[in-house]
């Protein structure tokens, strides 16, 4: 039967919403009541059926509308998709990874047939039917990374490995939490994490870099990261901050449930075979406070998390302006009962 794709918007009239099934599979990122900074990297192994980690690349009911939103962003600002010249082998690696995974796990929507280097790709939800020669850029309508990531949910960065560091030398970034690919492209691992508070001082990035330099083919890893967004806007880019920033001031005690969204990123990293590069995928999920509290455990836990969040982290995530109001609104869903350990709904 496949996925029922929704028609919705992530801008202007903001018609985005989650179905009850989408709420239940939301990647709620807190396994305890108190906020703790952690890198929490784990193997990107298949999770339970219907969960967001059932398959390595998660396609959900928002797929078609998210791809439409990405096309709008790229039309307005082509610099959101860039690749330095030496990254072409990594771009093809990404084509292979995404086409293989999508066609294997969602065969009712995507089909891939290979005859040597001659590949035939069918994307039914987006109405695409493409025959091309793997490795020959001139046989695709646009460069390989852009081609496939216009058809896959999530932002992607390609990291070149040289001189014992990782260099963000290509990417497509249209659903980001306030960082600029155009500014960060060409930076190494330490540099692009520069603005993140606290973590540098406790050695988090040194350890993470060492871990990733030895990331192996066939053993991808993942972690969750989170922030909050006003309105279900995917494009919270610095480029357009002067356009969406004002929305942060529109939160009132009456509209918290509808306007304030928890935004969770499923970040996954794979070693790529031809290029020895790493692909860093950042897949954003949004859930409104109204939707969140339909899971009683999350309704109790999330205000407790917000209360325990250190000020520098709240500032870095840009949620100081509406944190108190959100805690107040959520507190009617927190009866003080203990919560069960772990991420998942009871």
């Amino acid at each position: 039967m496949g996925i029922q794709f929704k028609q919705e918007t992530f801008r202007d009239d903001y018609t985005f919403s989650n179905s009850p099934e989408a709420i239940r599979r939301f990647p709620f990122p807190f396994d305890r009541d108190e906020y703790m900074y952690s890198v929490n990297i784990e193997q990107h192994m298949p999770g339970p059926p219907k969960s967001y980690v059932e398959f390595p690349i998660d396609i959900d009911e928002h797929y078609v509308s998210e791809m439409r939103d990405r096309a709008i962003v790229l039309k307005e600002d082509p610099l959101r998709c860039q690749s330095l010249p030496h990254m072409l082998p990594a771009e093809w690696d990404l084509v292979e990874l995404l086409m293989d995974s999508m066609s294997k796990h969602y065969p009712e929507h995507f089909q891939l047939t290979k005859d040597g280097d001659r590949w035939h790709w069918v994307n039914q939800p987006l109405g695409i039917d493409q025959t091309f020669t793997f490795g020959d850029t001139a046989t695709l309508p646009c460069p390989p990374m852009e081609y496939i990531t216009r058809q896959c949910q999530g932002d992607f960065a390609l990291l070149d490995q040289r001189q014992d560091n990782l260099w963000m030398d290509a990417g497509i970034v249209t659903t980001q939490a306030d960082w600029s690919l155009d500014f960060d492209i060409g930076m190494n691992f330490m540099e692009w994490h520069g603005p993140v508070p606290i973590a540098h001082d406790i050695g988090v990035f040194d350890r993470a870099l060492k871990f990733l330099l030895n990331l192996q083919q066939g053993r991808p890893v993942r972690r969750l990261n989170w922030t909050m967004t006003i309105n279900p806007r995917l494009d919270t880019s610095p480029e357009n901050y002067h356009k969406w920033g004002q929305e942060k001031a529109t939160v009132t005690p009456e509209n918290v449930g509808d306007k304030v969204h928890l935004r969770v990123e499923l970040q996954a990293l794979w070693r790529l075979p031809r290029s020895n590069a790493i692909v860093f995928s950042i897949r954003a999920y949004l859930i409104s406070m109204e939707e969140l509290v339909t899971i009683p455990k999350w309704g109790r836990r999330f205000p407790r998390i917000l209360k325990s969040l250190p000020e520098p982290i709240a500032n870095y995530k840009g949620l100081s302006r509406y944190r108190e109001m959100t805690i107040d609104w959520l507190s009617k869903y927190d009866d003080g009962q203990p919560t069960s350990p772990g991420f998942f709904p009871d």
């Binding site: 030496h86 990254m87 490995q161 040289r162 083919q217 066939g218 053993r219 075979p273 290029s275 020895n276």
Partner: peptide, 10 residues
């Protein structure tokens, strides 16, 4: 699986 500790600097 193959591991590369001696990559070409592209």
């Amino acid at each position: 699986m193959p591991v590369n500790l001696f990559p070409i600097v592209r």
